[in-house]
Design a protein around this nucleic acid. Structure first.
Lengths: 212, 212
DNA sequence: GTCTATAGTTGGATAGAC
DNA sequence: GTCTATCCAACTATAGAC
């Protein structure tokens, strides 16, 4: 609520500038996210950005970190599986939720791929790409674990491995959807794959109908 | 063999310049592929590039087309499945071949994603991304068909749909491999998925051992 | 028809003012 | 400690020479 004009402490400036950078990056891509544009959008002079960030890469690192943070936040907001008794249902529910989040943020998804590519080209930014994946992996892994335990099931393989496969498929489907925009086909692919993934788990004990 | 110095007809210049652009793009990424760099690499003056290509986008379109052409060429070079009798074996063989081609061209794979992202951000270049996918799809589809017929099997679902799923998984696995460089894990994921895909087909008639 | 020389824009970085 | 004014490099594009 307070005024964000001038003479801000560096920490606040940084978050303000990262927000501006994120806006631009989502809307117009990483190539359009120049220091000048960020400064203009934030309403500060050009040099202010250079005062807060050592160089452009430094700004990108902060931007990537913000995206990862947002992703973590979104993942923890993910609702439970209601009262799904069946693992197949729980999985579908979880994956549908994931996909809904993806489909609602097309530009942000594209940005994620752009940042990955950018990070892979720049040796100094390699850790950014790795961190992106580590966080996504952990989120999917947690989702799979949760889906299993809440339906009294167990994964027959290391859940991290399953998560890696799910993540790969999710990435591939998302990329394809970014290109052709066919959400129906994407969901169909995802549903098929989810059914397949379900075979990696067994239900340990079947809950009786009226047990709750 | 002839001299490529000066006063070349436009068509030859174009292919020469696209080759130079490809070299730079593979080695340093799309962002580093500037008109100046291309001109310098090709050993021509800056304006020559602008004479051959309307603008930078025009050059990129030609570059993307070259990559697609190369991909088509590589796909048609793909060897058969030797004398695989079993569809599972044929599929593994085909997918291994695909993967080998991917793992041998890391920078080119990364470039493909960069071009996709670039094309998705630029409305005028959307068709480039679509064409990329159309070609890959067709190649995978042909491979699946060939694998089935050569082992006297048949896909129980439209082969294009299966190809789409394979392509998605392949994309996801490739992207992941670009980030973590773990070729062993990538192959393992791919093998698992291939085994799964095999369940989408049935073998129509089993060849007798000594029938050939 | 092919290429050269040059103009004009945009961008990252810094020295120094307040 | 925070910000302003300025510099210089790199890029795209074009007008015009050969």
């Amino acid at each position: 609520m307070d005024c964000v004009r001038s003479r801000l402490p560096q920490a606040q400036r940084r978050t303000q500038l990262v927000s501006a950078a994120l806006d631009i990056a989502i809307a117009e891509g990483i190539a359009a996210t120049t220091i000048r544009r960020v400064a203009k959008r934030a309403g500060v002079a050009l040099g202010v950005v250079h005062y807060c960030f050592a160089d452009k890469d430094d700004l990108f690192v902060a931007l990537a970190e913000r995206i990862v943070t947002d992703l973590l936040g979104a993942a923890s907001d993910a609702p439970g599986f209601d009262d799904a008794e069946d693992l197949a249902v729980a999985l579908r529910c979880a994956v549908d939720g994931l996909w809904e989040g993806i489909e609602a943020t097309r530009a942000a998804q594209l940005l994620t791929y752009e940042i990955t590519a950018h990070a892979l080209r720049n040796p100094a930014l390699n850790h950014v790409a790795e961190r992106q994946y580590a966080v996504s992996r952990a989120a999917v892994s947690a989702l799979l674990s949760s889906a299993a335990t809440s339906t009294r099931s167990a994964w027959l393989r290391p859940v991290d491995e399953v998560a890696d496969e799910v993540l790969a498929m999710l990435d591939g489907i998302t990329l394809r959807w970014l290109v052709d925009g066919d959400g129906v086909a994407a969901r169909a692919r995802l549903a098929r794959f989810t059914d397949y993934v379900r075979t990696y788990a067994k239900t340990t004990r079947r809950r009786r109908k009226g047990s709750a």
